[in-house]
Simulated scan of single mutants.
Amino acid sequence: MKLFNSRLRSQKHMKEKVSEIMTTDPITGTVPSPLNEIVKILIKNNLTGLPVKDVKNHYAGIISRRDIFANPAETQAALVMRNAKTVKEEDSIKSAAIEMLNQHRRHLTVVNENNEIAGILTPQNFLQVVKEKYGNIKVKDLLKTITIPVWGKTPVSILPTLMRLSGVFTYPVVNSAGEFIGLLTDRDLFDKIDLKSTTVLSEAGLGEDEDPWSWG
């Protein structure tokens, strides 16, 4: 009977603390360093963003692909990173989710009592909790009915500006007949970055040193 009750309590246990769902020992960057070094880490490890620490191993900020797109001419990581708010390991999952929503970002750094990076949260970390609490919600109830399509022959140099101004980072691609032919995301653009360039985006044809609208 005791064994049965123990199993029953275990089944009913809902994860409550950040430490229970966070990704531990995340890949990090360091400042000061050239931005290209951060870009290399992101591409090599197929990451969308990473926390950054200083030379004393303390949390300094976070850099994501969106931050890089928003600063196409910068060459130093410290000038691109955001000193975003963090959460602690003992914080509640609910408070962490609210903080992520407030930041309108997909990465949230977890620090310990010494302000050292202990982990990271992304939407994927919340999936099990969402499944347990909201498993009956249908996909159709979450769909966005308004999207921003792009034409398949649109020059790629226009897209970083479009993403930055619209705040939208995923686009359905259509042909001249308005038919869906694929999907384009900021990851697709990020993979085009020239790591040998003096600036991260400009030399890749994705910067703002030329008029991206001068086409067609």
Rank of each mutant, 00 (worst) to 15 (best):
L201K: 01
N57L: 09
M163N: 03
K12Y: 08
T75C: 05
K2G: 12
M14V: 14
V55Y: 14
I93T: 03
A77T: 10
E89V: 09
G178R: 11
D188K: 07
S33C: 10
E99H: 01
I181S: 04
K44Y: 10
V200Q: 12
P32Y: 05
T86I: 09
V18R: 03
S197I: 06
R106C: 05
F69V: 04
L101D: 08
E16G: 03
K85I: 06
T161R: 10
F169H: 15
G205K: 11
I117L: 04
P34S: 06
T48I: 12
G205A: 04
I27L: 13
L159Y: 00
Q11G: 02
I158Q: 10
L121C: 04
L8V: 13
D186Y: 03
M81D: 07
A78S: 14
I148E: 06
K12E: 11
V80N: 10
L184Y: 05
W213Q: 08
I68S: 02
F190L: 07
L50C: 04
H13N: 11
M22A: 00
I120A: 00
K88H: 11
M14H: 13
D211C: 07
F69S: 01
I27N: 01
I137K: 05
S166G: 09
L142K: 11
E208N: 15
D209E: 15
S176V: 06
S202F: 02
V52Y: 07
K12M: 12
L127I: 12
G29E: 05
T48W: 03
I93G: 05
E179G: 13
Y134K: 08
E113K: 09
M14D: 11
K2R: 14
I120H: 00
M100L: 15
I27S: 06
K56I: 03
M22P: 02
K94I: 07
P72Y: 03
E116M: 08
A84K: 00
E16W: 01
G216V: 13
S6V: 14
Q76W: 11
I193D: 07
L195P: 08
G178Q: 08
A177V: 08
D191S: 14
N5I: 13
Y59Q: 03
K144F: 14
L108Q: 03
G152H: 15
A118T: 07
E210V: 13
L8P: 01
L143P: 04
V168S: 02
T170Y: 10
T122S: 12
I27Q: 05
T154E: 09
H13P: 03
S6G: 02
A70M: 10
I120C: 00
I146A: 14
T198S: 15
L79E: 15
P34E: 10
A84Q: 08
S19R: 01
N102Y: 04
K144G: 12
T122R: 04
L165R: 00
T170S: 11
E90N: 09
L42I: 15
P212R: 03
T122Y: 07
V168E: 04
Q103V: 00
I38S: 05
P149G: 13
I41R: 06
N125Q: 08
V173I: 15
L162W: 06
A70T: 04
E16L: 06
L159T: 01
H58I: 07
V111L: 02
I117E: 04
W215S: 08
R105L: 07
F4V: 12
T24I: 12
T147Y: 14
L47I: 11
L143E: 12
T75Y: 10
P123L: 08
V168K: 02
D209P: 04
